[in-house]
């Protein structure tokens, strides 16, 4: 009798069920998973790309000794590549 009374008093616990559903399914499961995914997959992918390019940066930086000959050599390679492209384009 007492327990029936309690069930009735709480309106058959329907609010409890709905609350449980929204809190655990929508909020804790769905939203939290999406949030975790956003931080650990999508944003992480972006950050990883940035980090990789930064470390590549550092590596490349070490090759740059600031000598005139290096720079002119690089320029020469560039010119050769450009000429090559123009040649191929011209033939095609």
């Amino acid at each position: 009798m007492r327990s029936l009374h309690t069930v009735l008093f709480n309106g058959y616990y329907i609010e409890f069920f709905i609350h449980y559903f929204t809190k655990n399914i929508i909020f804790n499961s769905l939203s939290r998973t999406i949030n975790w995914m956003d931080i650990h997959i999508i944003d992480a992918a972006v950050n990883a790309t940035v980090n990789i390019s930064f470390s590549l940066n550092k590596l490349l930086r070490k090759t740059d000794r600031g000598l005139m000959s290096d720079n002119s050599g690089a320029m020469l390679i560039g010119v050769v590549i450009l000429l090559f492209i123009i040649l191929i384009e011209g033939i095609a």
Binding site: I26, L30, S31, I34, N35
Partner: peptide
């Protein structure tokens, strides 16, 4: 939907 759920959790 994705951003909506993100906003709910935020």
């Amino acid at each position: 939907f994705y951003a909506g759920f993100m906003a709910i959790y935020e």
